[in-house]
Computed example of a mutant assay.
Amino acid sequence: MTTSVQATTTVEYRPVQGPPVKIEVTSEQLHGRACIAGTDHPKPLVPAGHVYTGTAGAPLGWAVVACADGCTPPEEGTDSEH
């Protein structure tokens, strides 16, 4: 049996409400195709703020989503995959 390991990237998450936090996200979360909290709920997904990745210049912003049922966003230093 093989297990798939998804690569993660450290980003600054700026939720709609609350202070910015550093978290780990997958490509699916970064591109708005999966809940930023890492929950595996069926859609719909709703806007949940932005994450910012480091670049050689200014940070690059990405719109992220969360489950419409109000799942809890990740906390600083936690892996967003639960």
Score class of each variant (00 low, 15 high):
Ser27Trp: 06
Val25Cys: 07
Ile36Arg: 08
Ala48Gly: 07
Thr39Pro: 00
His41Cys: 15
Asp40Ile: 12
Arg33Glu: 14
Thr39Arg: 12
Val21Glu: 07
Gly38Ile: 10
Gly38Arg: 10
Cys35Ser: 14
Pro44Asn: 05
Gly18Gln: 11
Ile36Trp: 07
Pro20Gly: 09
Ile23Gly: 02
His31Gln: 14
Thr39Gly: 04
Pro15His: 05
Pro44Trp: 01
Ala34Ile: 06
Pro15Leu: 06
Ala34Asp: 04
Thr26Glu: 03
His31Cys: 00
Gly38Asn: 09
Val16Asp: 15
Val46Arg: 09
Gly49Glu: 12
Glu24Phe: 07
Arg33Phe: 08
Ile23Cys: 06
Ile36Gln: 08
Ala48Met: 06
Glu28Leu: 14
Val51Pro: 03
Tyr52Thr: 10
His50Arg: 13
Arg33Val: 04
His41Ile: 04
Val25Ser: 08
Leu30His: 02
His31Asp: 13
Gly32Cys: 07
His50Asp: 05
Thr39Asn: 12
Pro15Gln: 07
Ala48Glu: 08
Pro20Ala: 15
Pro47Asn: 04
Val16Ile: 15
Pro42Tyr: 02
Tyr52Glu: 15
Gln29Trp: 04
Leu30Cys: 00
Cys35Arg: 03
Gly32Leu: 07
Thr53Glu: 15
Thr53Pro: 00
Gly32Lys: 10
Gly32Val: 09
Ile36Leu: 12
Gly38Phe: 07
Pro20Phe: 09
